[in-house]
Design a protein around this nucleic acid. Sequence first.
DNA 1: TTTATATGAAACCATATGGTACTATGTCAA
DNA 2: TTGACATAGTACCATATGGTTTCATATAAA
Lengths: 106, 106
Amino acid sequence: MNRSDQNSFRALADPTRRDILRMLARDEMTIADVSSHFDMTRAAVKKHLTVLSDGGLITVEARGRERINRINPAGFAPVLSWLEFFDQFWDDRLSTLKTTIEKDKT
Amino acid sequence: MNRSDQNSFRALADPTRRDILRMLARDEMTIADVSSHFDMTRAAVKKHLTVLSDGGLITVEARGRERINRINPAGFAPVLSWLEFFDQFWDDRLSTLKTTIEKDKT
DNA sequence: TTTATATGAAACCATATGGTACTATGTCAA
DNA sequence: TTGACATAGTACCATATGGTTTCATATAAA
């Protein structure tokens, strides 16, 4: 089976990276921008951004001495596609699932 | 911020565990059943099942000396809910997931 | 040109992770 | 009861991961 989705799932496994994605969903940011939101070094944040980039969840564009990080919606496709596989088996239980999602929303 | 989704995201990060979930989507299985599909020891598979259980993605029921592992659709809610956050920014991209859920609601 | 800024990269560290082997316990079956 | 079977649990190992520090490089600004 194809394992091209491994990098995207791995990228989503870390809470810091998920937070970064939520930030980038609102606005593109430089590495320094992102770093300013976390209590860790810029080098650590840069590593996270590299993992996100490897997973295809963000794109990075060089602009002068800065690196513009942007979320990449298409990168989520492997994850969503994998999750959708289960729909064919959950016809019965899906209403429960849907209800749980609504309750879990913040 | 809420971090209750950490265990479920972590559970999905490993390819073996994702394969196990696909198997369990079709049928409940004992630990031995699951192990027979992988080239690794039963102990290793059991660890994966524990991680899946911690993440709420499966349930485990003791039946005699066996342990029946079943997929837990509700356990996917935190993941799907987290992904749906992005809908408000990507009217187009993530609509597939929403569509699938709505479709199966009937 | 000089200096400050933004990032890249490498070495290093502690802990987590995914695996093994071995032993123990509970349960089914003859 | 005895023996086989299914699982639990522990110790252990190699590598991955998430973090730091330090230094190098490219670009912007004075």
